[in-house]
């Protein structure tokens, strides 16, 4: 659009708002105070509560450890008949994934999506990704795609497998944003993912597997931080 039109619209809109804006701009909302008052549920561990919530959104949660997760993954791959698995090449998961049975062909997300589309859309059965943490309150995963694990890795394939370390769980979205200092370092795309995609647009009947993944499997790794 014409830059002059844009500049004109901008100054007209801002002028109207400035003219009417109240002199008193009010006090900052007490977000921290609100979350400070929220009691942490004590009935069970944060990992247990996360898993319960995640399952309520029809995510499959598989408890494992830093030592046996690759075996758990192999079982899932076999059980679901996954023949084409997509992953990022330089993530901490890569070695474990590479050890999978040869019956599964591994695809590394090495090229740009444009040239990779035929494989990505037509072949890949599942994408496996790391996570930056999870939220116990809602059973959500924090997924920050990057150069190694692009956005479509967790979006286009019908199955999304996510690896989550229990020590990266937070009670609420607010707590996660604070602890992980989101505001200063957001990636181009940051996501919360809660269960597989779904819709209730036809007569309010809930169906899983709308446009995103139809299944979400979470490998929940228990054990020491950094293990």
């Amino acid at each position: 659009m014409n830059p002059a039109d844009n500049a004109r619209a901008r100054s007209a809109i801002l002028a109207r708002l400035r003219e009417a804006a109240p002199a008193d701009t009010g006090t900052a909302p007490g977000v921290a105070a609100y979350y400070g008052r929220l009691a942490t549920p004590e009935r069970s561990s944060i990992a247990t509560r996360f898993a319960e919530r995640a399952r309520s959104w029809r995510a499959e949660v598989v408890d494992c450890t830093a030592h046996n997760w690759a075996e758990a993954l192999a079982r899932i791959v076999a059980a679901k008949g996954i023949r084409h698995l997509l992953a990022g090449r330089t993530t901490p998961l890569a070695a474990g994934i590479a050890a999978l049975a040869p019956a599964t062909s591994l695809h590394w997300y090495d090229e740009t999506m444009e040239t990779f589309k035929p494989v990505l859309f037509d072949q890949i059965d599942a994408g496996i990704s790391t996570t930056r943490g999870g939220i116990a309150d809602t059973g959500s995963l924090i997924v920050w795609p990057d150069a190694d694990e692009p956005r479509t890795l967790s979006l286009v394939p019908p199955i999304h497998i996510a690896v989550l370390h229990a020590h990266t769980l937070h009670e609420t979205l607010y707590a996660a944003m604070q602890a992980q200092r989101w505001a200063g370092q957001l990636p181009t795309n940051a996501l919360l993912v809660t269960g597989p995609s779904k819709t209730a647009d036809i007569q309010r009947l809930l169906v899983y597997g709308a446009h995103g993944p139809k299944q979400l499997v979470i490998l929940l790794l228990h054990g020491e931080a950094g293990a």
């Binding site: 809602t138 059973g139 990057d146 692009p150 956005r151 181009t188 940051a190 919360l192 993912v193």
Partner: peptide
């Protein structure tokens, strides 16, 4: 919708960067 959360919260803060493969 009476849900504690939706499936996706999608926070977009920029187009694809030079080293990124999609977006």
């Amino acid at each position: 919708t009476g849900q504690a959360v939706t499936t996706y919260l999608n926070v977009i803060s920029g187009p694809r960067r030079a080293d990124e493969k999609d977006g």
